[in-house]
Simulated scan of single mutants.
Amino acid sequence: MGRTVSAKRMLLIETAFALFYCKGVHAVGINEVLAESGVAKKTLYHHFDSKDALIAAVVDYRDQRFLSWLESRFEAVQPGIAKIDALFDALDDWFNDRVTDLMPFHGCFFINVSGEFGEPDHPIHQQCARHKQRVAALIESQLLLQMSSPEECREICQTLCLLKEGAITQAHVQGDRDAALKAKKAALRLMER
């Protein structure tokens, strides 16, 4: 029995994500997505009127999965310093391929894709920027559970996000799979202030 229309759409998104994440968006053509997914070209264009529309759907897909995963890691611990541990322990698991929901680590999908769509006003670049804003908002919401000053919370959140982004880049570009643990030490020193 064939897949439903929504199942085929999801298959296209998941297949495209796996290919884009491993090889890069511009390095993967529509025909490769079709061959890998086994979906007909007509079906692809029924769901997506262009490659950019498929890319936008893939960015949304990864955004939802990543945020859901990170939120679940935060929910698993009590408020307080454990939230900081949870953030960097989650990154450590991701960098070291212990998170099956996220695929083996190939850097940050959003950093990679935004680099391929370098113009800040390009819609896909903006989608990637919104993902980073949503992750920062999630981290800030976790900090607000333990801090009384919204201004201090925002400042610490910005620093934690810089540490997080630096760890992701260090892990990907330099292969330092311990980058999250190093960033966690710096974050905990910050929180001791």
Results as ranks from 00 to 15, higher is better:
Thr4Gly: 12
Thr4Ile: 09
Val5Gly: 14
Ser6Cys: 08
Ser6Trp: 14
Met10Asn: 05
Met10Thr: 06
Leu12Gln: 09
Ile13Gly: 02
Thr15Asp: 06
Cys22Asp: 15
Lys23Ile: 02
Lys23Glu: 02
Gly24Pro: 11
Val25Gln: 05
Val28Tyr: 01
Val28Trp: 01
Ile30Ser: 05
Ile30Val: 13
Asn31Val: 10
Glu32Tyr: 03
Val33Asp: 08
Ser37Thr: 11
Ser37Gln: 09
Gly38Lys: 12
Gly38Gln: 07
Val39Ala: 03
Ala40Pro: 01
Lys41Asn: 04
His46Gln: 12
His46Asn: 09
Phe48Asn: 03
Phe48Gln: 03
Asp49His: 14
Ser50Gly: 06
Asp52Cys: 02
Leu54His: 03
Ile55Leu: 14
Ile55Gly: 03
Ala57Asn: 15
Val58Leu: 06
Val58Pro: 03
Val59Met: 01
Asp60Glu: 15
Asp60Met: 09
Tyr61Leu: 09
Arg62Met: 05
Arg62Asp: 10
Arg62Cys: 01
Asp63Arg: 10
Gln64Pro: 05
Gln64Ile: 14
Arg65Trp: 10
Arg65Ala: 04
Leu67Asp: 13
Leu67Phe: 04
Ser68Phe: 07
Trp69Leu: 12
Leu70Asn: 11
Arg73Ala: 15
Arg73Tyr: 15
Phe74Asn: 03
Ala76Leu: 02
Ala76His: 00
Val77Asn: 11
Gln78Ile: 05
Pro79Val: 15
Pro79His: 13
Ile81Ala: 10
Ile84Cys: 02
Asp89Asn: 13
Leu91Asp: 13
Leu91Trp: 00
Trp94Lys: 00
Trp94Ile: 00
Asn96Phe: 13
Asp97Gln: 00
Val99Pro: 00
Leu102Gln: 12
Met103His: 07
Met103Gly: 04
Met103Ile: 02
Met103Phe: 08
Pro104Gln: 03
Phe105Asp: 08
His106Glu: 12
Cys108Arg: 00
Phe110Arg: 01
Ile111Ser: 01
Glu116Arg: 14
Gly118Met: 01
Pro120Thr: 13
Pro120Asp: 10
Pro120Arg: 12
Pro120Leu: 10
His122Ser: 05
Pro123Ser: 08
Ile124Thr: 13
Gln126Phe: 01
Cys128Ser: 04
Ala129Gln: 11
His131Phe: 13
Lys132Trp: 09
Gln133Ile: 09
Gln133Cys: 10
Arg134Cys: 15
Arg134Gly: 14
Ala136Met: 10
Leu138Gln: 13
Ser141Arg: 15
Gln142Leu: 01
Leu144Lys: 13
Leu144Pro: 12
Leu145Trp: 04
Ser148Val: 10
Ser149Asn: 14
Ser149Thr: 06
Glu151Thr: 14
Glu152Asn: 13
Arg154Ile: 05
Glu155Ala: 15
Glu155Ser: 15
Cys157Tyr: 11
Cys157Lys: 06
Gln158Ile: 11
Gln158Thr: 10
Thr159Tyr: 14
Cys161His: 07
Glu165Ser: 15
Gly166Thr: 11
Ile168Gln: 02
Ile168Ser: 08
Gln170His: 05
Ala171Ser: 04
Val173Pro: 00
Val173Leu: 00
Gly175Cys: 03
Gly175Gln: 06
Gly175Ser: 04
Asp176Val: 07
Asp176Phe: 07
Leu181Ser: 06
Ala183Thr: 06
Lys184Pro: 08
Lys185His: 01
Lys185Met: 00
Ala186Gly: 00
Ala187Pro: 02
Arg189Ile: 02
Leu190Ala: 05
Glu192Leu: 12
Glu192Gly: 04
Arg193Trp: 02
Arg193Glu: 08
